[in-house]
Design a protein around this nucleic acid. Structure first.
Length: 129
DNA sequence: CCACTGACTCGCG
DNA sequence: TCGCGAGCCAGTG
């Protein structure tokens, strides 16, 4: 973190001994927790994960964190997709293919390149009927 | 500190 | 429904 206030805010209590007004978990850890909570066979958007982690408007941060997962991590990163309900392209297409394969294996329905709305973990009532 | 980049999102045409 | 452009906000060099 390069921003002054944030480096303090994202530090664990054991690291700074601050007993008040801060989150016990770093932003990265909160994102992990939310992603880990997405049920099998469902998906959430980057924006939803960010908001649920207490980081509204930080959708890109979610993408960054997922791209930095330690090898061997069992976090279900494949359950996070973009707001268009499509798998976000990375530099390498193989990541996209693997994500789709994993989702299909757990029963997520695709309509063309898009994921069926019913597979969204937290459906957004503000959208379409 | 500045500039560029990106697993994002939203509004428009 | 799709493509484009602008906004956004951290990470990196």
């Amino acid at each position: 973190m390069t921003r002054a206030g944030q480096s303090e805010r994202s530090r664990r209590p054991s690291q700074i001994g601050a007993p008040e007004n801060f989150h016990p978990l770093t932003a990265q850890e909160r994102i992990w927790q939310v992603v880990a909570a997405i049920p099998r066979g469902r998906v959430a958007t980057y924006g939803q994960v960010a908001s649920l982690a207490g980081l509204p408007r930080r959708a890109r941060l979610v993408g960054h964190v997922l791209g930095n997962l330690p090898g061997g991590s069992r976090l279900p990163w494949h359950r996070v997709v973009n707001a268009a309900l499509r798998i976000s392209p990375r530099g390498d297409d193989r990541g996209m293919h693997e994500q789709r394969r994993r989702l299909e294996r757990e029963g997520v329905a695709f309509v063309g390149p898009r994921i069926a709305r019913g597979c969204l973990w937290l459906d957004d009532p503000a959208d379409g009927t």
